[in-house]
C-alpha cells in the first residue's frame, strides 16, 4: 500500500477544511504514514467474498409517522450563533455559486 505524502496531507486538509500550519503538515504526514502502514493490514481480507458490515444491528425500515413535532424557537435555534441578523445566522461571505 502506498504511504502518505506531505502534499496528500495538504490536499486532505483542504477537503476537510483544516488550515494546517506548515509544521503540522510535516508532523502529520510522518504520523499518518505510520498509522496507514499499520492499518493497511485490513486489505488482507480484501479478496474475501464477505459482505461489508456498515452497521452492527440487522435493523431495517425504522421510520417515523409524518407528524409535526414542536420545533425549537428561533431564539433557541440561534442561541449558539457566533453572529446573527434578522433572525438569521450571519456568516462571512460565501464563495462559489448557488
Amino acid at each position: 500500500m502506498p504511504g502518505i505524502t506531505r502534499e496528500e496531507v495538504a490536499h486532505l486538509a483542504r477537503l476537510a477544511r483544516l488550515e494546517l500550519k506548515s509544521e503540522e503538515l510535516d508532523h502529520f504526514a510522518g504520523q499518518l504514514d505510520d498509522i496507514i502502514g499499520a492499518v493497511a493490514r485490513v486489505s488482507e481480507v480484501a479478496d474475501q467474498d464477505v459482505p461489508p458490515t456498515s452497521h452492527p444491528l440487522p435493523l431495517t425500515n425504522v421510520m417515523r409517522a409524518d407528524e409535526v413535532r414542536p420545533s425549537l424557537t428561533p431564539e433557541q435555534a440561534l442561541s449558539g450563533a457566533p453572529a446573527q441578523e434578522q433572525q438569521r445566522f450571519k456568516v462571512p461571505q460565501i464563495l462559489g455559486e448557488d
Binding site: 420545533s71 428561533p74 433572525q87
Partner: peptide
C-alpha cells in the same frame, strides 16, 4: 429526517430543531 413543519412562509428559523 425530523418532525419540523415544511409549511412555506414561516418566520426565519422558526421551523428548525437540533
Amino acid at each position: 429526517f425530523c418532525g419540523c413543519s415544511t409549511e412555506l412562509g414561516a418566520d426565519a428559523n422558526s421551523q428548525t430543531c437540533p
